[in-house]
Design a protein around this nucleic acid. Sequence first.
DNA 1: GGATTGACGTCTG
DNA 2: GCAGACGCCAATC
Length: 110
Amino acid sequence: MSKKNYYQDVFEVTKLIPHGRVSTYGAIANYLSLGSARMVGWALNKSFVEEGVPAHRVVNRKGELSGRIHFPSPTMMQELLESEGIEVVDHVIRDFKAKYWSPSEALGED
DNA sequence: GGATTGACGTCTG
DNA sequence: GCAGACGCCAATC
């Protein structure tokens, strides 16, 4: 079994998100060719079983913390993002486009 | 084993 | 430009 499960790939990509950056479900889904952004969200739902997965850095295309409700605390996600220097207003990332990080950037990380 | 749901995204009206 | 509906694919009930 050299190939990991698709959600394991989601964990890996999510872990690759730099500090102070955020990514979207669609970007990861597109990068992993999952075909559905929902798969990413569902996979991240299991991310709690896996440690070291900054699921709080993953938001929807609108930059909204749509998954905050699945966290131990609905404010934990925002607190974590603010702790990384990401401004969050009304559960929405400010300058989301500027904080946006694409998994493709991991290729030329260097 | 079928129907529903789900941390979303894109299209059409 | 905003709102509503549909599609994705897998897991859970």
